[in-house]
Amino acid sequence: MILETGRIMAIETEGVWVETIRKSACGSCKAEKGCGQSLINKWDGHTVYIWVLLEGRNPADYHLGDEIQIGIPEEVIAKGALLVYMVPLITLLLATVFAHHQFAHEGISTLSGFAGLLLGGLIVRWHSWRNRLNSDLQPVLVDDRKPLHFYQAVEQH
Rank of each mutant, 00 (worst) to 15 (best):
M1D: 07
I2K: 00
I11F: 10
I11R: 07
I11W: 09
E12W: 12
E12N: 10
E14W: 08
E14H: 14
V16P: 02
V16K: 01
W17M: 10
V18N: 01
E19R: 11
I21D: 03
I21E: 12
I21M: 11
R22Q: 09
K23W: 11
S24P: 04
A25V: 15
A25G: 15
C26L: 15
G27A: 07
G27W: 04
G27I: 05
C29P: 07
E32W: 01
E32Y: 01
K33R: 02
K33M: 09
G36W: 04
Q37R: 01
Q37C: 12
Q37S: 11
I40G: 02
N41D: 08
N41P: 02
K42D: 14
W43H: 14
D44S: 15
T47C: 14
T47A: 15
V48I: 15
I50Y: 04
W51I: 04
L53C: 13
L54W: 01
L54R: 00
L54P: 06
L54M: 09
E55S: 10
R57N: 00
N58W: 05
A60W: 05
D61V: 03
D61H: 12
D61L: 09
Y62T: 08
Y62N: 04
H63Y: 01
H63K: 15
L64R: 13
G65D: 11
E67F: 00
E67Q: 13
I68E: 05
I68R: 04
I68H: 03
I70H: 00
I70E: 03
G71S: 06
I72M: 11
I72V: 14
P73L: 04
P73I: 03
E74S: 09
V76S: 07
G80S: 05
L83D: 07
P88Q: 05
P88L: 01
L89Y: 05
I90P: 02
I90F: 14
L92T: 00
L92H: 02
A95M: 08
A95K: 03
F98Y: 12
H100S: 13
H101A: 10
Q102N: 13
E106L: 13
S109R: 09
T110N: 11
L111Q: 03
L111H: 04
A115E: 01
L117D: 07
L119S: 07
G120P: 01
G121Q: 07
I123G: 05
V124I: 10
W126T: 11
H127N: 13
S128M: 14
W129Y: 12
W129C: 14
R130G: 02
N131R: 14
L133W: 12
S135P: 13
D136K: 15
D136S: 15
L137Q: 07
L137I: 09
V142D: 02
D143F: 06
D143E: 06
D143P: 09
D143L: 04
D144C: 09
K146L: 12
K146W: 07
P147I: 03
F150R: 05
Y151T: 00
Y151A: 06
Q152C: 01
Q152G: 08
Q152K: 11
Q152F: 14
V154W: 03
V154I: 06
E155K: 11
E155I: 06
Q156D: 02
Q156C: 00
